[in-house]
Structures are given as structure tokens and as C-alpha cells.
């Protein structure tokens, strides 16, 4: 009886979770094109990765997004949280407005951003033109496509970070703040000495989840380069591989080229990278977490 009730979970866990994970590890050591049985080739997929220039390009693009994206997302999230933590009229409306982008479907938003980034008729270049500032080609220019992608991603995710920080701010001990104020600490000093340390665990949490989600970025770049403007009917990662993120190249190998073995190997390498980075962050984060009012 108990087993019967557990069966859906057991089937789901083993069949749809553990089995695919295990089989992808096996496929990563094979040459597998979906149509023919996999052939064991040992570590060749992994060795090939080292010499695949496109792999490194995708790796670089993803690293670029993560290295710039995570700190920016933390800083912007904290900044917004501090702003909407103020006791002003209509503050909940502001909170809702900043959070709104997170609940809008990513695909729809990406298509709107493509219009905003339109080089000749887009909103953004229209504004920049009015101010006599340079008007880059954004998504159509290999030198600007990554910053454009970053703006798009940050706009959609910063609200989430803000909410987490906002929750953290409610936890800052009012006694400590009062004590600091009595000691004559100004706004900046209070932020540095009281608020930030108290927010340590939140920063740590946001950094870890941020790194993981930035390393797995897919949707925005996929939509922006496969929906395409007049030119690109399906140049994944266009222009010139400048937005070919790791997950995009993985997808391309698996579902366009039929290199399921290579794609599986790439997935495991990404998993290893995420795992190692998370372990490293946990090491670095010890001090951050201890900050929380001595309770950690």
C-alpha cells in the first residue's frame, strides 16, 4: 500500500531524474547521434573540447556574462532594495514595479528588447541620438551584443535579487543601527559597518544562485538569435558567435548537429564548473554568513 502510494514519486525520481543523469554520463563517453547505437570512445569528447575553438568562444561568452552579471545584479539589487526600503508614500507600488519584470515571460520580453535595441528605429538609439551620444548596433554588432544581452538579462532578474535583499533588510537589527547612529556613524558608515555585514547571508545566497543561473543562461540569447531580424533566420549565437553561450552551443550540438555524446560531455563539464565554483563560493562565503547578528 505504502509502496503503491510512493510509486509515482519512485517512478518519477528514478525514471525521469536519476536515469537521465546516469545515461548522460554514459553518453558523454560515446559517439552518439541519436539514430545509431552509441559507440564507446572513452575520453575523446572531453579531449575534443580542449581543441574546439567554438567551445572556448562559448566558454568565454558565458564567463563574460557571469563575471559582469553577478556583481552587477548584486549591486543593482541591493541599490534598489535600499531605495524601496525607505518609508515613503507608495513604496509598495515601487516595489511592485521593480519586481514586475521577473514575472513577465522571458520570450515575450526578449522580443520587445529586440525592438528597443533596433539600431535605426529602436527606442534606445532614439534616446541616445537625442542626447548626441553614439548609437551602437547593439544585438547586430559583435562588439555590443554581449552588453545588450547583459542589459536584457539584468532587467529581468534584478527584481528577484531586490526582493531577497529587501527581506534581508528587515532583519537588520534596529538596536545596532541605533547604537551606530548614537556613535555618530553617517549613512555611508552605517551601510558599510552595519547593513552590509548583516546582509552577508543574503549576499552569499544571491551570489551562489546568481553564478549558477548566469552560467546556464539560454533563453534570451536563443530567442534573440533564432527569431532573428531580417538577416538571421537561425544563426544561433549571432553575430559572429558573440552571443553563443555555453548552453546554446550545447543545444546546437545536441539538437542541430546530432552530437549527443559531445553535448552530454559539455553538460558534465558545465556541471563540474558549477559544482567547483559553488564549493569555492562556500569557502569564501564563510565570513559573509557569520555576519548575521551572531546567529549563524
Amino acid at each position: 500500500m505504502a509502496l503503491g502510494l510512493l510509486a509515482p514519486w519512485i517512478v518519477g525520481f528514478f525514471g525521469l531524474f536519476l536515469y537521465p543523469i546516469g545515461i548522460s554520463l554514459y553518453y558523454s563517453f560515446t559517439n552518439y547521434d541519436i539514430l545509431q547505437p552509441p559507440q564507446w570512445i572513452g575520453f575523446l569528447n572531453y579531449a575534443y573540447m580542449v581543441h574546439d575553438p567554438v567551445f572556448w568562444q562559448a566558454f568565454y561568452n558565458t564567463a563574460y556574462m557571469t563575471v559582469l552579471g553577478v556583481p552587477l545584479s548584486l549591486a543593482l539589487g541591493l541599490g534598489l532594495a535600499l531605495m524601496v526600503n525607505a518609508r515613503v508614500r507608495g513604496v509598495s507600488a515601487y516595489r511592485a514595479i521593480f519586481y514586475l519584470p521577473t514575472i513577465v515571460p522571458t520570450v515575450a520580453v526578449t522580443i520587445i528588447w529586440m525592438w528597443i535595441f533596433n539600431p535605426d528605429y529602436g527606442l534606445l538609439n532614439g534616446l541616445l541620438g537625442l542626447l548626441h551620444l553614439p548609437t551602437p548596433g547593439w544585438l547586430s554588432d559583435p562588439g555590443w551584443s554581449k552588453p545588450a544581452l547583459l542589459i536584457m538579462v539584468l532587467w529581468g532578474t534584478v527584481g528577484q535579487t531586490m526582493v531577497v535583499y529587501l527581506a534581508g533588510l528587515q532583519n537588520v537589527s534596529p538596536e545596532l543601527m541605533e547604537a551606530a547612529m548614537l556613535d555618530g556613524a553617517g549613512g555611508w558608515a552605517r551601510l558599510r559597518a552595519v547593513v552590509l555585514p548583516a546582509l552577508g547571508p543574503v549576499t552569499f545566497y544571491s551570489a551562489v544562485t546568481g553564478v549558477i543561473s548566469f552560467l546556464q543562461l539560454f533563453t534570451q540569447a536563443f530567442v534573440a538569435t533564432s527569431a532573428g531580424g531580417a538577416g538571421g533566420a537561425g544563426d544561433l549565437g549571432a553575430p559572429v558567435h558573440s552571443t553563443l553561450l555555453y548552453s546554446l552551443y550545447l543545444y546546437q550540438n545536441a539538437f542541430q548537429f546530432g552530437h549527443m555524446g559531445y553535448a552530454s560531455a559539455m553538460a558534465w563539464v558545465l556541471f563540474a564548473i558549477i559544482f567547483l565554483l559553488t564549493v569555492a563560493l562556500f569557502g569564501l562565503g564563510k565570513d559573509l554568513v557569520r555576519g548575521e547578528g551572531g546567529t549563524a
Binding site: P119, L139, S140, G229, A230, G231
Partner: peptide, 13 residues
């Protein structure tokens, strides 16, 4: 840049 902008600004095929 101008060539890419020309296409990127045009409507779908």
C-alpha cells in the same frame, strides 16, 4: 556596422 544596422532595422523576410 552600417550594413548590419540596415538589416537589423528592417522587418522580417
Amino acid at each position: 556596422k552600417a550594413m548590419s544596422a540596415f538589416l537589423a532595422s528592417a522587418g522580417a523576410y
